[in-house]
Computed example of a mutant assay.
Amino acid sequence: MAYQRESKMDQISSELAQKFIAALKEETLPWSKGYDVNYHPPFNPATGTVYKGASNVILLLNNIEKGYTDPRYLTFNNAKDLGGHVRRGEKGVTCIRIQPKTINITDQEGKVILDENGEPKQRELLIPCPYTVFNVAQIDGLEHVLKPLNLAAEKHQWDPHERAEELIKNSQAKITHSEFRDIVEAPCYSPYLDQIFMPERYQFKSTERYYGTLLHELCHWTGHPSRLNRFDEKAHNLGFGRPEYAKEELRAEIGSSLMCLTLGIKHDLDDNSKAYVKSWIKVLENDPREILKAAAQADKIATYLRQYDIVKEKPKEPLLKPYQGKVHPQDIENVKQQAVERIDLNVKQRIFDFSPVKNQEKSIPTQTSLER
Rank of each mutant, 00 (worst) to 15 (best):
Y211K: 00
R350L: 14
K314Y: 04
P315G: 01
A164H: 00
S279M: 06
R72D: 08
L142Q: 07
E313V: 06
F43T: 08
K282L: 09
A23H: 11
E208W: 11
K348W: 09
A79K: 09
K321P: 01
L214Q: 05
A295C: 10
M198N: 02
I105N: 06
G241H: 00
T94D: 11
K266I: 12
V357Q: 07
N135M: 07
N286C: 07
Q122C: 05
M198C: 08
L142I: 10
N44H: 02
A295L: 08
T262R: 13
E166T: 11
L29M: 14
L60N: 08
Q360A: 10
I168Q: 00
L149T: 03
A46V: 01
S190N: 02
Y308G: 05
N77Q: 14
E248T: 05
F231E: 01
S178C: 05
G255C: 05
D159R: 03
Y192D: 06
S256A: 10
I96V: 15
L16R: 03
Q108E: 15
T207M: 14
A153Q: 10
Y131F: 15
D309I: 02
N104Q: 13
F231P: 00
L269I: 12
K8G: 08
T207R: 13
L151E: 03
E317H: 11
E248F: 06
Y68A: 02
G84Y: 03
A46H: 02
F352G: 00
K19T: 14
E15H: 09
E124D: 14
N150M: 04
L126S: 12
L151T: 04
P71W: 02
P329W: 12
L61A: 04
H220F: 00
S355W: 04
N104W: 02
R163L: 09
Q307Y: 06
L82R: 06
Y192L: 14
S273F: 11
D268H: 15
C188S: 10
Q203R: 13
A186W: 02
S32H: 14
P322N: 05
S355L: 02
M9K: 11
L292S: 05
K80Q: 12
Q138M: 11
A173H: 03
I98R: 07
Q99F: 15
V50A: 07
H161Y: 15
E248S: 05
Q203A: 12
R289G: 10
I254E: 01
E313K: 05
R251V: 15
K348I: 11
P100N: 13
Q99P: 08
Y308H: 04
P288C: 09
Y73P: 02
K348V: 10
A137G: 13
